[in-house]
Computed example of a mutant assay.
Amino acid sequence: MSIVVLGIDALDPDILDGEEHPNLCLDASKEIDTVLSSQTGRPSTHELWPSIITGLPPEAHGIELKEGLAWENPVFSAASRLSTVLLPKQVQVKLGAWLLDNTDEGNFRTPASYYEEHVLETVFDDATSKAIGIPNYVVDPDDEDREHELRKNMGELFQLDLEDETDHRHTTSDPGKFYERCMEMSMVRIALTRRALRGQRYELVFGYTSGLDLIGHVSYAEPGLQERAYREFDEFVGELRADLGDDDELLLVSDHGLQEGEHTETAAVAATDERLIADIESILDLKSAVETELSETDHTPAQQESHTRIGEGEKGREVQQHLEDLGYM
């Protein structure tokens, strides 16, 4: 049996509705607290996922937004129109934070070895586990999946509005194309999470996708996109939920909410069993909740896969080859 954690960036507790989104709410769901960045005063994806997997605030795990941290990013080096202009400090901080949250030019790419080197315990340490796309927990720095590839090549499909006074509002040159790209990103990550579950080799499977977050950042100007995305995500999670065995559990978690194009100061959790989230009041409690479940319930992976699941046999190799051929692995 396995516990599956799916990180859905920007899943908003105030948007979730049990009747409209039964699979995003699962059998129990609630609003939880997030952590604000000391630099921007808003929740930052760059800082929050390391906090979720360690149970520590950013100042304790050390992966923080800092002045100038992203200012030498290649995006700026390539933009001659910016390199010749002296921007105010507050604008530099805003743009640096945006680069870390919304591009893939070396961002979100802290290797998993960082945690061991800095003696930081993670939710993955004491379990047979599979981490899929967790921001700033990169198991293989040389490996990039389809979500990474699509996200870093958004171009005009996802641009920061520098004239807007908020920190995270964006524009898109083609709402329809942008939406489909975000959906593809999400489908890839959720498919990889499903496959890891179906292989029955892991006590803990922890997947992550950023598609809902990206769509939320442009939805203030594109009414209906976010609502549509929630409906589709509910279907995606429903397919993952259908893969669960009788003894498997599913837990959803977000790092913050997102409304009117901006991050909000609350996050969400949902689970197939209320006891999994009973003691989670903040994103910092997720690690402890998962570890408690692993210690109190036998999640030893099955020694032999069921014929109805995809494992390491011939069928498993066929599926892996198919994903590789499509560029998803």
Rank of each mutant, 00 (worst) to 15 (best):
V4Q: 03
L11H: 01
L11M: 07
L11N: 07
L11P: 00
D12W: 02
P13H: 11
I15V: 10
E19F: 12
N23M: 08
E31D: 04
D33N: 11
D33T: 06
T34S: 02
V35Y: 10
S38I: 06
Q39H: 09
G41C: 08
P43V: 13
H46P: 00
E47W: 01
E47K: 04
I53G: 00
P58F: 14
G62D: 07
G62K: 04
I63M: 03
P74L: 13
S77V: 13
A78H: 12
A79I: 09
R81G: 12
L82V: 05
L82S: 06
Q90W: 15
L95W: 03
L99M: 12
T103P: 00
R109E: 14
S113Y: 06
Y114W: 09
E116N: 12
E116K: 15
E116V: 10
L120E: 02
T122M: 10
V123N: 04
F124R: 07
A131M: 05
P135D: 09
Y137M: 00
E144K: 14
H148K: 12
H148S: 13
N153P: 00
N153Q: 10
M154A: 11
G155W: 07
L157R: 01
F158D: 01
D161W: 08
E163M: 11
D167T: 10
R181P: 02
C182W: 03
C182G: 01
M185T: 05
M187Q: 13
M187L: 12
M187H: 13
A191Y: 09
F206C: 06
G216I: 05
G216Q: 04
S219N: 07
Y220G: 01
L225P: 03
F233A: 03
L240G: 00
R241L: 12
A242Y: 08
D243G: 03
G245Y: 10
E249I: 06
L251I: 04
H256K: 05
G257C: 07
Q259G: 08
G261V: 01
T266N: 11
T266H: 08
A267F: 06
A268I: 05
E274H: 12
E274L: 07
L276T: 02
E281L: 12
S282P: 04
V290E: 01
E293D: 11
E296Q: 09
H299F: 15
Q303H: 15
E305S: 14
S306Q: 13
E312Q: 14
E312V: 09
E312M: 10
G316Q: 01
V319H: 11
H322N: 12
D325Y: 14
Y328C: 12
Y328I: 06
